[in-house]
Nucleic acid binder design. Structure first.
Length: 492
RNA sequence: GGUCUCGUGGCCGAGUGGCUAGGCAGGGGUCUGCAAAACCUCGUACAGCGGUUCGAAUCCGCUCGAGACCUCCA
């Protein structure tokens, strides 16, 4: 187990060996949701991706401080520096306090994350709770001369910054290209250049969310929160910063510029970006109107969905693709994931019941399988390859069960440990169906009784009666399987 | 228009110079009263055209197609 963890770094566009700044400590910051709407499948992707990263780093023995923010202020509609705050707009439309909107959608985000078995981060800071830190950082940028005041608002001077530091180092953009590509938008006369971004915005009179500052009653710009909170909890330099690929520019690019301007150093060693969920080949996004919320997946109530999909099906579906690839949503693909996941969990049930055979002659070697699982995760968190290896294990388990293979005590122990580690702890998958051992409940006893009656019918070769019992049980969601060891049942 | 990414069998999706990815669906078989499950087995895929090479899905060039970012989105 001496292989190294490789992480694809967006900054270098290469896989790099992961070397933390202060081992065994690891600092990781991931951009969380702007809480103005129900969480959708697109939110699940980064949450699950970085949950996997979090779990694996911890498994490797690192002490991880995982910070995932809640954006509850400063995220504007339309142009980054104009338009209404998303939260404030929702509050106005629904006649709620902005913080009511924030609380409501934060709750629903948390609920969805729990369903998906996403571990809570170590710290979940709110932007609105860190206005002081954001103002302090803006002051440092002003003192360093990389920002200017205009009519009560503070803007970052991209052109000046770019003379000493490359603006575009992360996204591969050049300021000259930005000039050419920038559109003429209204209300930008305050800025020296259209691509300058707001650090602080003076609030219009009708704006509800506002704080007093040295410059005006206003609110921080969107990019400020992540820089300020990342610095606050992880230091001026930390290990990993993650988020969706759509945040690469301008959000993350601007974070780098802000931190370099304020602190004089690159804030992050490894930038990680998950790719998008697509639907019919197009990005799933709230503004595109093709987003399906997680609740709709769990209930099946959406016109694009043929059926409901359980949280673990969604989780498995997402992890069957590498995080840097786009993942295309379709009912067919989700159903395939559902079946595959059922096959995996069924094998895990069997694994508990397997017996070792000490006189085994052609016993299987599990150590190699475990090693391959380990290598897959160390290769930039390659969950689809990990899952492929686990399915090799599934085949092994089923063959042992069928008596076609034998396993000794040591290998059986390793096999159980491997599945427990990689399926439960790392992939974070948990079984969803109730197993057949619920025979101590009244319901269980009733089912066992009916199975007994069916077995009598079968002995008497009264197959019509036997099949009728099986069909009726199936109607209420109890599935029977006749095996060599007897009848197994589980709930659908 | 600029920057970038990608095009893998019926579907999803790994791999990225020579060695079976895997899952789902489908065909055939074993087992079973039947069914289900499981196991065995089959399909002979890498957008197109050219080039490099002993050898390319994998490298290079061109063509076609798709997508992302450049404005809020995870």
């Amino acid at each position: 187990m001496n292989n190294k963890l490789l992480i694809y770094n967006t900054l270098s566009k290469k896989k790099e060996v992961f070397t933390p700044i202060n081992p065994p400590l690891v600092g990781m910051y991931v951009c969380g949701p702007t809480v103005y709407g129900n969480p959708h499948l697109g939110h699940a992707r980064p949450a699950i991706t970085f949950d996997l990263v979090f779990r694996w780093l911890k498994y490797l023995g690192y002490k991880v401080r995982y910070v995932r923010n809640i954006t509850d202020v400063g995220h504007l509609e339309n142009d980054a520096d104009e338009g209404e705050d998303k939260i404030a707009k929702k509050a106005r439309l629904e006649e709620l306090e902005p913080m009511e909107v924030v609380q409501y959608y934060t709750n629903s985000y948390h609920a969805a994350m729990r369903m998906l078995n996403v571990l809570p981060p170590s710290i979940e800071p709110h932007a609105s709770g860190h206005i002081i830190e954001q103002m302090a950082m803006i002051r440092k940028i002003l003192e360093a001369g990389y920002a200017y005041e205009s009519n009560g608002s503070i803007y970052f001077d991209v052109e000046k910054y770019n003379k000493k530091h490359p603006y575009g180092i992360l996204s591969g953009r050049k300021v000259e290209d930005l000039i050419a590509a920038s559109r003429e938008l209204e209300g930008q006369e305050e800025k020296k250049n259209p691509f300058d971004f707001a650090l602080w915005k003076k609030a219009a009179p009708e704006h509800i969310m506002r704080w007093p500052s040295d410059w005006s009653d206003g609110f921080p710009g969107w990019h400020m929160e992540c820089s300020a909170m990342g610095t606050r909890y992880l230091g001026e330099e930390f290990d990993i910063h993650g988020g969706g690929m759509d945040l690469l520019f301008p959000h993350h690019e601007s974070e780098i510029a802000q931190s370099v301007a304020a602190n004089g150093k690159m804030p992050v060693r490894y930038w990680m970006h998950n790719n998008m969920i697509t639907i019919n080949g197009q990005k799933m996004g709230k503004s595109l109107g093709n987003a399906v919320s997680l609740d709709e997946f769990f209930s099946g109530k959406h016109k694009l969905l043929d059926q409901a999909y359980s949280p673990m099906t969604i989780r498995f579906f997402i992890m069957q693709a590498q995080y840097r690839s786009t993942l295309d949503f379709s009912n067919e693909a989700l159903k395939a994931a559902e079946k595959g996941f059922q096959r995996l969990t069924a094998a895990i049930d069997e694994l508990d019941k397997l017996k070792a055979n000490e006189t085994a002659t052609d016993t299987v070697n599990i150590a190699a399988l475990k090693e391959k699982c380990y290598e897959a995760m160390n290769d930039d968190f390659n969950s689809p390859v990990l899952i492929a290896h686990l399915f090799e294990g599934v085949k092994t388990i089923n063959s042992i069960k069928d008596g076609k293979l034998q396993i000794d005590q040591d290998n059986l122990a390793v096999l159980k440990e491997t599945f427990s580690t990689f399926v439960n702890d790392i992939l974070g998958l948990r079984p969803e169906t109730e197993t057949a051992d619920g025979s101590d409940s009244i319901t269980g006893k009733l089912i066992e009784t009916l199975i007994g009656l069916r077995q009598e019918a079968r002995l008497n070769k009264d197959f019509a009666a036997a099949d009728q019992i099986r069909d009726k049980l199936a109607d209420i969601g109890v599935i029977l399987k006749d095996t060599k060891e007897g009848v197994e049942w589980n709930l659908e």
